[in-house]
């Protein structure tokens, strides 16, 4: 178990290393941050002074080595724009993204699993067919378009829900959160719904497929032949059996929601990490981009690790050896 976790951490380290290398090379090709940082009327001396101040006058490989050296001490550099440590900038924005993603995922899991169970248990029912047709729509509509439509519908036409910002926030554990206040929840509603739509469709299809598969298995029939209540047959015997793929997808979706919530955050002016990332790319603020990506990679690794641990709780047949070699079931 310990060896397995060490190996996972080592792999994560390699991924981070490769990613930083790519970001350095990629941004170097994309443009020179100095062009953006210096005022247009600055002379060559001023230009050189600013480049030197940010260490941008040195060759790229020197810049990279310097970055690595500082990174080992937990310093991912200072933002060119804000002149503050990049990591703390990212972490400041993390709670907003986190609460949005978690809420979206709760909506997705709640609706996805319950609708999927229904459609799987009663495949012939009219409602099931409607659910399945709706899921195709949910999977195929682009997120940005749905977001715009939600704004047009619920904010502009009906005026029910606000379309931008976080609303009132409440400080918990030293960070501001929107979800504990009613106004914050109203602000969360549209972006969370927008993020959840695709996932609802995904999870419900996955759930339905799982149910269709296990409902005819002997152990489900045996559970019924023992006279167990339907709630127990469905809630324990069927649900536990189909949970592994669903947990995997929820884990991956959680990561990708956090990593790629830029579109939704931009549409709803949600001050999360995604927006910070977009802004930083526009001004080639390399330290912030790197810090953001490091945070996201670490998040992916952690969530996958948690999902693997959860498998073990869900299915006793998954041994440590399976997980270590990556050979799933």
């Amino acid at each position: 178990m310990l060896a397995w976790m060490l190996r996972r951490s080592f792999q994560a380290g390699l991924v981070v290393l490769a990613m930083t290398l790519l970001v350095f090379a990629g941004l170097h090709v994309a443009g020179n941050p100095v062009d953006i940082l210096v005022p247009p009327d600055a002379d060559a001396a001023e230009r050189a002074r600013i480049a030197a101040a940010f260490g941008l006058d040195r060759p790229l490989w020197r810049q990279y080595l310097l970055f690595l050296e500082r990174a080992t001490q937990g310093d991912l550099g200072r933002s060119f724009i804000y002149n503050r440590p990049a990591l703390s900038l990212v972490f400041e924005r993390l709670p907003a993204t986190l609460e949005l993603s978690v809420l979206a995922l709760l909506i997705a899991a709640g609706f996805g699993i319950s609708l999927g169970l229904f459609a799987g248990l009663r495949p012939q029912a009219l409602l099931s067919r409607l659910i399945m047709a709706g899921s195709v729509v949910g999977l195929s509509l682009p997120t940005f378009w749905v977001g715009l439509m939600l704004v047009v519908g619920f904010s502009v036409r009906l005026g029910w829900l606000p379309s931008s910002g976080r609303g009132d926030t409440l400080a918990l554990l030293g960070v501001d959160w929107s979800f504990p206040t009613l106004d914050g929840l109203r602000h969360l509603a549209l972006p969370a719904a927008n993020l959840a739509l695709f996932k609802v469709a995904l999870i419900l299809r996955l759930t339905r497929a799982g149910v269709r598969e296990v409902v005819h298995l002997d152990y489900v029939r045996f559970a019924r032949a023992r006279g167990l209540a339907p709630s127990r047959v469905v809630g324990v015997h069927i649900l536990r059996a189909i949970m592994i793929p669903i947990v995997t997808v929820i884990g991956l979706e959680f990561c990708s929601t956090i990593a790629f919530s830029m579109v939704t955050e931009s549409i709803f002016a949600w001050p999360g990490m995604g927006r910070l990332m977009i802004e930083s790319i526009q001004v080639l603020d390399r330290p912030v981009i790197v810090a953001y990506l490091v945070a996201v990679v670490l998040l992916f690794v952690t969530v996958n690790l948690l999902a693997d641990l959860l498998y073990r709780l869900l299915d006793p047949r998954v041994g440590p050896a399976d997980a270590a070699t990556g050979a799933g079931r």
Binding site: L217, D218, Y219, R221, F222, A223, R224, A225, R226, G227, L228, R232, V236, H237, R240, A241, L314, D315, P316, R317
Partner: peptide, 29 residues
């Protein structure tokens, strides 16, 4: 079912739920 009329299935590998303990499955019955 399971009370006055009980049933035993063909394949013992398949009739018990693999993710629940033996005890849990007997106790629930």
């Amino acid at each position: 079912r399971g009370n006055r009329i009980a049933m035993i299935f063909q394949d013992p590998m398949m009739t018990l739920n693999p993710v629940l303990t033996i005890g849990a499955q007997i106790v629930e019955t």
